[in-house]
Design a protein around this nucleic acid. Sequence first.
RNA 1: GGGUCGGUGGCAGAGUGGUCAAAUGCACCUGACUGUAAAUCAGGCGACUUCGGUCUUCGGCGGUUCAAAUCCGUCCCGGCCCA
Length: 371
Amino acid sequence: MVFEIVQNNNGVRKGVLSTRHGTLATPFFMPDATRASVRGLTVDQLKSVGINPMVVNTYHLYLQPGMEFMKEAGGVHQLMHWDGPLLSDSGGYQVYSLIHRNPELGEITEDGAVFKSILNGSRHLLTPEKAIQIQFDLGVDMMVLLDDPRPNDSAEKVFSDAVDRTVRWAQRCKIEFEKQIVERKFTDADRPLLFAVVQGGPFMDLREKCAKGLVEIGFDGYSFGGRHVDMDGVFMEEMIAKTASFIPEHAPRFALGIGTPDDIVRCHSVGWDMFDCVIPTREGRHGRLFIWNNNEKRTKESFYHTINISNAQYREDFTPIDVTCDCYACKNYTRAYIQHLFRSREPLGAQMASLHNLRFYMRLMEWLHSI
RNA sequence: GGGUCGGUGGCAGAGUGGUCAAAUGCACCUGACUGUAAAUCAGGCGACUUCGGUCUUCGGCGGUUCAAAUCCGUCCCGGCCCA
């Protein structure tokens, strides 16, 4: 059994997911180590705040350092000196994001995603099969199939076509996945897990259709694809809840790219189990720090606030970022010092901010496990 | 003492008659960031404002001109050169 639900409270689940690099208690959050590195942090630092699974990216690692190198390096675990579980994203979202921002950089065809490298302009074709092969070469524990995301303001027809394509690609991914399992002599006990992606944008019936199509093919887990907020940035609560309900209960549900702390809480409360997001690290690098509200004021609706450490009001604030936090930054440094590091562009500032925010996210997971 | 170049908004530094409340950079004040083209990006940064404008600014003072940061006189201050 890949995934076992140990508690289900009106759809709020706690479970255990088994991977080749250990079991994971859901819900869990994975920081993004896109280029085989959580920006600015060492393995020891990540471990010190309780990080276990992380997400690397097919697209980025394929372009740089490239797959020959990755094979030579002995896989991504060995390369980045990480012995915890790793999940790789397929690169579908990266190509989508690239094309969405600049249509000249590529296009989606039935064959796969055609795109220009932003590093040197070289042309590449990422097919569903290739995305799977690359992820096997990376040696990750969990992979995501190549999907076809679209911006949330697209027409229904666009989403409908994207859903159909995502399902067709899913079929191709599954076939390639099974072929690789045989070729690489994996057994059911030591094979990686494969996650499908449910697309459909804001259209509920398309989400349902996509989920059905994917479930029919059969995957280890299912992900929420695309953006979970509308064009105004509003969390699409009902759609996210419904999409979870379209996924079989016994499968882990991965909320791709989600999210802010309250988005994670809301997603978890409607049945999502796994999360990854750049927010704790990116916003940390940009000076936004997550802070717990006082215990007695903590509710699922309101449990944290943020500060921008660069703001003038913290210039002489010689208190820790968060008095309740046990991360290295909070244990040893003051807000005034972190601000000084930011103002003087000392990389230690961004590093400590990332570390603290990741600790915040880990504590958020601990909290969700405890309530 | 003589000559010469120069004094511009917190700093550096453009501008050398009107389109200048004055480029640009830094600093400063905010904001954004959700499967990382992001140690990034956006806005603000003289005062007041009914947001259309109004008023006071480019070392000081005094001129020329319809109009001056820009031209003239003078004074103050600084750099360099000569005594």
